[in-house]
């Protein structure tokens, strides 16, 4: 399906996600997990979502992926059309999610090849030969070997499972990829390996990524825009460099400052974040 490239790829307007609590309907209250969040993304731009545990990063991604049962107010527009008006098959080939916990997200009863084949045979009209070719290409891209395709889930290591989870997201060739904080838990070397893969996706296929990231260096390298969440509220949304060099909100300033702390000075005694504008003051967090 061909889409014209519009500047407005994804628009989120005043999104609030809430859960109803209380046993009876007259006692029910709304508890907001996210309140009043709005941002826009162009085609091919990358958004990094930064925040602590419990700030609503995963909820936001799940709402975008339509895999969360919570009800929401506000609008999510994809190509200037409400995401609820899409047919599921169309939407799935535009936005895909890399699930953070492959053990529970993927089916352990079927082989890896079948796991990768299922979204293709359900959502596209490809012939079996094309499907086979696409699966082998995708598996090679993420770093799975031919013999892994015949394995069951429990025969793979944790890292291979994550690669499989990424392959399953990429096999439909989506326009946007949602990455939950799964990559954060890996060790430094493997994490950089994954980041390289994301960079390649951005450059070669102009794919939009929406990633949960807490590492400021990685944000600076990977992302175009940053959304900083704190307890479900958007603290700051904007381009990366202005956010780092002249932060507007108090929380962002403190995050950047703590990134300059001496514990993190590895390469030299100088602070990790260079500060051209001299906005950040020392010893004041």
């Amino acid at each position: 399906m061909a889409y014209t490239i519009t500047p407005k790829f994804l628009q989120v307007k005043n999104l609030s996600v809430f859960f109803s609590t209380g046993r009876y309907f007259f006692l029910q209250k709304k508890r907001y997990a996210l309140s009043d969040i709005s941002f826009t993304l162009k085609q091919g731009e990358t958004l990094a979502i930064c925040g602590d545990a419990g700030s609503g990063k995963s909820t936001l991604l799940q709402i975008l992926n339509d895999s969360n049962a919570a009800s929401y107010e506000g609008e999510i527009l994809l190509y200037e059309k409400n995401i609820r008006d899409y047919d599921r098959r169309d939407r799935v080939s535009i936005i895909r999610m890399m699930y953070p916990d492959p053990d529970t997200a993927l089916n352990p009863h079927i082989r890896v090849y079948k796991i990768l084949e299922m979204p293709l045979s359900m959502n596209t009209g490809l012939s079996p030969r094309e499907i086979k070719k696409r699966i082998s290409v995708t598996a090679e891209y993420v770093g799975l070997r031919e013999e892994h395709l015949n394995c069951y889930l429990h025969m793979l290591t944790d890292i291979q499972k994550l690669r499989l989870s990424l392959a399953r997201a990429l096999v439909l060739r989506p326009q946007a990829l949602l990455v939950d904080s799964s990559v954060e838990k890996l060790d430094a070397v493997l994490r950089m390996d994954f980041y390289n893969m994301f960079l390649d996706l951005q450059k070669r296929y102009r794919m939009s990524l929406i990633i949960c990231l807490n590492d400021l260096c990685a944000i600076k390298h990977l992302a175009d825009k940053v959304l900083i969440l704190d307890h479900g509220k958007a603290e700051e949304f904007g381009r990366v460099e202005p956010m780092i060099y002249s932060p507007r909100s108090d929380l962002t300033r403190r995050i950047v400052q703590s990134y300059n702390h001496e514990y993190r000075c590895v390469h030299s005694a100088a602070p990790a974040v260079a500060r051209p504008l001299g906005v950040i003051t020392k010893n004041s967090d």
Binding site: G143, A188, M192, N196, H221, L222
Partner: peptide, 23 residues
């Protein structure tokens, strides 16, 4: 040590990280 990205002024945006693949 190489896997830690350097955030200094010289670092180019969207440049690849130094990391060997594999496990």
């Amino acid at each position: 040590l190489d896997a830690i990205p350097d955030m200094g002024a010289g670092s180019r945006r969207k440049s690849f990280f130094k990391a060997p693949g594999g496990d």
